[in-house]
Amino acid sequence: MSVKHGLLALLQDGSKYGYQLRAEFESATGATWPLNIGQVYSTLARLDRDGLVEAVGATGDEDDDTRSRYRITDAGRAELHGWFDTPVARRDRPRDELAIKLALAVAVPGIDVRAIIQRQRTTTMRSLQELTTLKRNAAADDVSWLLVVESMIFAAEAEIRWLDHCEAMLVRVARKPAGGSTGTSDPAGLAGPDAIGAPR
C-alpha cells in the first residue's frame, strides 16, 4: 500500500487540492495514518511525472504547487483499479519485527524470553483496549473508520493469540527433561531466570 494509491482513490470523484487530499486521506483512515502536506505534494509530483494525475487550473506561479488542483488521468484510473483488484500478498508486507525479536531472544543465551512475551502481551492488550474504546465511541455509520479500527483489532488479537501460543510452547519445552544426561536442559533460557535448576 502506498500513499500513491490512496491519493488516486480520493481523486476518483473529482479534482482536488493537496490540502483537501490530505484531510480526506486522514478522515478515511481515521487519522491512523497521518500524512504531512509535504508527503502529499511530493507524491502528487511523482504521480504527475508518471502521467497518473495532472494539474488543472493552476493560478499564477506554475511552481507554486500549493495552488494546483489535481485530476486523475485514464492511466491513473487503470493503475487504481489494478491495485484494488490485486490482493495484498503476505510476502509484500514488512517482516514482523516481533517474530524476529523473539527468535533472536531464544537464540541468544541469558535472555528471559517469557518476560519479553509477557511484556509484549501487556502492551498489545493495552492497545487492544484503546482500539476497542475507539470502536465503542465511533459513529455506527462511519464505516471507513470502523473498517480500519477493526483491521487493527484483528491484528492485535492475532498477535496476542500467537504470544499465548509461544508462551505455552516455551513452558512445554522448558518442562521436558533434558534429552541427554549432560549439559543444561534450558540452554536458551527459555524458562526465564527464575527457572534455573527449578524444574522438577
Partner: peptide, 8 residues
Amino acid sequence: EARHAAWA
C-alpha cells in the same frame, strides 16, 4: 478472547 476482554 482478547478482543472481548478488551471491552473491560
